[in-house]
Simulated scan of single mutants.
Amino acid sequence: MDEKTLKENLQVQLDELETLEAMFYNPGEIKIEDPLTLLEIKEYVDGNSVDVPLCLDYAINLVIDGAKFELCVSLSHEYPYIEPELFVRNNQLNRDQHISLNKKIGEFVSDLPKGEPCIFTTISWLQDNASEYVELDSDETTSHTNDKDEELVRYWIYSHHIYSKTKRKAIIDLANQMKITGFVMPGKPGIICVEGVSSDVVEWWQSIKSMNWKKIFCKTTESNKEELKAQNFIKFHGFIEKVFDNHGPKYNHMDMGEFYKYLEEHELGYIFKDIFGVEAKTT
């Protein structure tokens, strides 16, 4: 993308955000994830900086029929010509309702014309339709239990990068909601480890990989069938974001030595070569 196009796209994003801030002006209704990034975008668009800024992330808090919703928004530099990354959260929704709502909102945005801002249109759709998902009969949704006889699996997922706060929230929130354990390491590359009951992990993976990614794939899988004792298979308690000392021009490359130590602490050091194709440097 040339500089002129990038500046035009960023100006559209700033104009749209300004319109939204005029509509949702009460404290806490709009939250900019990183105010410094917003400032850098403005400086770049105005020609006061030559450094390409990071992408814009913000969240809009809505009350719809008495229920609180948070719409997390992440805009790539190509927006509005490609779809925004969106994720809706609501504590009243169970995981199936959550997945269904986010899938539907993704389909809605995909059908909108490209090249035009669409966040307000998406908010309007959410205001018109969100209550249907809150009111879903819980008996109609699928419930998975951690049956000790069901296979346990661990997925190792590799992404070209994981920067977006929207995606990072979605990864963590959905994992916690589904009682999946593991971690996500953001940056470049991005690594995700998820472990739990096979049906839950598969459902989580299907939901996450349906988001817009430059490159993401499951590098390798493990199961408790390969373990002598299934109770020793699960290595993590809960699901967290794990950030190591970073470096690089944008401080987005994680320290692989620290990452390897972290794996070793959880008896998973052997997987480093499977993920990266090289042995870890231990010195």
Rank of each mutant, 00 (worst) to 15 (best):
V201T: 00
F217H: 15
E227P: 00
W205V: 02
E226I: 05
G238R: 11
E241S: 13
N212F: 11
C193A: 05
I234Y: 07
D200P: 00
E241H: 05
F239L: 14
M211S: 03
E195C: 03
V194S: 02
F239P: 02
K215T: 04
S207I: 03
E222R: 10
T220P: 00
S210G: 03
Q206W: 09
S198E: 12
T220E: 15
F236A: 03
W204Q: 08
I208E: 10
S198F: 05
V194H: 02
K235G: 07
F239Y: 11
F217I: 10
V194T: 06
N212R: 15
K229I: 14
Q231W: 07
D200A: 10
K215W: 09
Q206F: 11
L228I: 09
Q231I: 05
Q231K: 13
F236N: 02
K235S: 13
S199F: 06
E195Q: 08
I240L: 14
E241M: 11
G238Y: 04
F236P: 00
K214R: 14
T220G: 04
K209C: 03
S199W: 01
C218R: 06
C218T: 13
K229T: 12
I216N: 09
K235W: 09
N232A: 06
I234A: 15
K235V: 01
F239D: 11
E241A: 13
I208L: 07
F233W: 01
V197L: 10
G238D: 12
S210L: 07
F233L: 01
N224F: 06
V201A: 01
S207Q: 11
K229W: 07
G196F: 02
S223K: 05
K225L: 14
K225T: 12
E222F: 02
W213D: 08
E226M: 10
V201M: 02
E241P: 00
E203N: 12
W213Y: 04
C218K: 08
S223R: 07
W205I: 01
G196T: 05
V194D: 02
K219M: 09
S223L: 03
F236H: 07
T220A: 10
C218P: 00
K225W: 06
K219T: 03
V202W: 14
K209T: 05
E222Y: 03
H237T: 12
F233V: 01
S210Y: 04
Q231P: 00
L228Q: 08
K209Q: 08
K235R: 15
V197Q: 14
A230Q: 06
V201E: 06
S199R: 10
E203T: 10
E195N: 00
I240E: 15
I208M: 11
N224R: 09
V202H: 12
S210R: 08
T220W: 04
E241L: 13
K229S: 13
V194R: 01
K235Q: 14
L228H: 11
F217W: 14
V202E: 15
